[in-house]
Amino acid sequence: MTNEEIKAYISSHAPEATFDETGEWLNITVDANSLKSLTTALLGQPMEMNYLFNLTCVDWKNHLTMVYHLSSTIHRHPIVLKVNLDRNTPSIETLCFTWRTAEMLEREVFEMFGVQFLNHPDLRNLILEEETPKGIDASKGYWPLRKDFEDPINMIKL
């Protein structure tokens, strides 16, 4: 499937989608609201994007970007799906019912970036401890992979 066909297909499901072909793979930016329906459509025929091989988040200091790397084990046309989120109250629909691997990956993003995944069955810390360490104000957020994170104890500054 060529990039043009993918573009046309995605545009029919998410009209607001914007495309970027400068990178290795096709980058698609969509709204958080249309993500759920779009991914369900992508999983089915004819795209069969059944393989979510990476899920992560990038902190752009004024907003967060969820990055989903998708591929198909049948057609092998990797695409990159991106969703921009508000940095103060980031929340997005979970994808763990579409791709089961998303469950653990989303838990990691949740604790590292503070993104709330709606309808996630088991949204808890995976790697970090449940309680924030002493001397940290948890109400302001304690998300280590955000750019403004400062650890009062172990931070190494360059």
Partner: peptide
Amino acid sequence: EDAISYGCS
């Protein structure tokens, strides 16, 4: 199906 869905490789 599960192997693909769970992202196994």
